[in-house]
Design a binder for these strands. Sequence first.
DNA 1: GCCAACGTTGGC
DNA 2: GCCAACGTTGGC
Length: 134
Amino acid sequence: MSYWLMKTEPGTYSWDDLVKDKKTVWDGVRNFQARNNIKAMQKGDLVFIYHSNEGKNVVGIAKIIKEHFDDPADKDWAVVEIAPVKKLSKPVTLAEIKATKKLANMVLVKNSRLSVQPVKESEFDMIVKMSQEK
DNA sequence: GCCAACGTTGGC
DNA sequence: GCCAACGTTGGC
């Protein structure tokens, strides 16, 4: 069981859009590192949905419901299918993540431009915990 | 809106 | 194969 984080601009496709759609094919990834992560995802893995630019926060948890297959738009690339699991009661902001010592090594902090990134179990748990506090 | 950081492209 | 130039992402 692995954990991931995928970024989206809420103006383009938000968490609410995912909830409304019930599931979606996560396409448009055009970065080799991100593609490798897409291909490593397994059914049942959990994925944080992060809103970039607007919000800059982790807003919800989704899960992989279909492992990678060729992007219908371009066979050189891969996509996965995800479904929403749970909205975080309190979104966890990038500022809060940066302010948390245990999360200082997150890819989100270290390599902010990677759109599909792995998350350690300890990091995942920590963020879930932070979303429940207050 | 600006710009730093990063990835990719292409000339040599 | 190196690296300068360019384009894009995303935080501020």
